[in-house]
C-alpha cells in the first residue's frame, strides 16, 4: 500500500443554506489517478476550490501529506505541493507562453529585488533554471508550445493549446498533486485521446499524483485507477470505473429516474 497523500474527512461547506458539499470523505494515494465525476452542480469545482484554499470549508478536515491545509492561502497550498487548472481556462493572456510557465515557479524560487537589481550570479543561475524548467515542461506537449511560440502571448493560442498551457503551468509549480478541472473539455476526440495518453505520462514519467474532474467518460475510463462520483455535494459511489459506471445511483444521478418510478 503506497503512502496516502491527500486525506479528506467529513468536509462540508454551506453557502447560505445550500450545502455545496456535505460530509465528504475522500482520499488519494501516492501515484494514483483519481477521476471525479458527477452531474453539473454536484460540487466538483467547489471541491477543488476547497482543496486549493480558494474557499474555506464550514467543517471537516483536509490533510495533505499528513498535515492540515485548513486556513492556508491558495499560494501556501501551492507551495505545499498542490497545483490546479481551471475549468474555464484562466491563463495570463498577455504574458508570453514562456512567462506563463515561468511565473508558476514563483514559490520554488527566491530571488528578490536585490538579485534582479544587481544581476547577481545567483539571480542569473536561477533565471536560467526557471527558463530551462519552463522549456522542459512545455516540451512535454510536443513542439506546439515551444520554439517561436515561447515569446508569443498566450492569447493567440487555440483553445486546445490553452488547455495544454494551463496544464503546463500547473506542472511547472513542481507540485506532487495535480488537480485537473476538465482537462479535455472543448477538445476534439483526437486531441482528447492524445491528452489522455499524456495524463498517463504525467504519472509514469513525471511522478505526479492526479485528481481529475472530467465529463468525458472515455477519458475517465482510460486513465483513472479509481473513480469517485459526486452528487449534491455527497459521495454517491466510488471504486473502479466499471463499478461506478454500473452503480444504479450513479446512473440515476446522470439520467434521472425512469418515468414510471417518478409517477408513483
Amino acid at each position: 500500500m503506497s503512502e496516502r497523500i491527500l486525506d479528506i474527512n467529513k468536509l462540508s461547506v454551506t453557502f447560505g443554506g445550500l450545502h455545496a458539499l456535505r460530509d465528504l470523505d475522500f482520499h488519494v494515494d501516492e501515484g494514483e489517478i483519481v477521476g471525479v465525476i458527477g452531474p453539473n452542480g454536484a460540487g466538483k469545482t467547489t471541491f477543488f476550490n476547497m482543496i486549493s484554499g480558494m474557499v474555506a470549508p464550514t467543517s471537516g478536515e483536509i490533510l495533505f501529506e499528513g498535515k492540515s491545509l485548513l486556513g492556508l492561502d491558495p499560494n501556501q497550498v501551492t507551495a505545499r505541493g498542490i497545483a490546479r487548472t481551471f475549468q474555464n481556462v484562466r491563463l495570463f493572456a498577455n504574458m508570453t507562453i514562456a512567462e506563463n510557465v515561468m511565473v508558476a515557479q514563483h514559490c520554488r524560487t527566491k530571488q528578490g529585488v536585490w538579485g534582479s537589481l544587481f544581476n547577481t550570479r545567483a539571480f542569473r543561475q536561477e533565471e536560467r533554471e526557471i527558463r530551462e524548467h519552463a522549456e522542459k515542461v512545455l516540451g512535454f506537449f510536443g513542439t506546439r508550445l515551444i520554439g517561436y511560440r515561447l515569446e508569443q502571448p498566450a492569447s493567440v493560442l487555440s483553445y486546445a493549446n490553452r488547455r495544454r498551457l494551463e496544464i503546463a503551468r500547473a506542472m511547472a509549480t513542481k507540485s506532487r498533486l495535480l488537480l485537473l478541472d476538465e482537462p479535455v473539455a472543448g477538445m476534439n476526440p483526437m486531441e482528447s485521446a492524445e491528452l489522455t495518453g499524456l495524463i498517463g505520462k504525467l504519472r509514469s514519467e513525471w511522478g505526479f499524483t492526479i485528481v481529475m474532474i472530467e465529463h468525458d467518460m472515455n477519458v475517465v475510463r482510460d486513465v483513472s485507477d479509481r473513480v469517485v462520483c459526486l452528487d449534491h455535494g455527497e459521495t454517491l459511489a466510488q471504486g473502479s470505473f466499471e463499478e461506478v459506471s454500473s452503480n444504479p445511483d450513479v446512473i440515476e444521478a446522470y439520467l434521472g429516474r425512469p418515468l414510471e418510478k417518478k409517477t408513483t
Binding site: 461547506v13 454551506t14 443554506g17
Partner: peptide, 14 residues
C-alpha cells in the same frame, strides 16, 4: 444570499 455567503466564507480567515 448564496453569493454573499460564498464571499463571506471565502473571506473567513483564521
Amino acid at each position: 444570499e448564496g453569493e454573499e455567503a460564498l464571499t463571506s466564507a471565502v473571506r473567513a480567515k483564521a
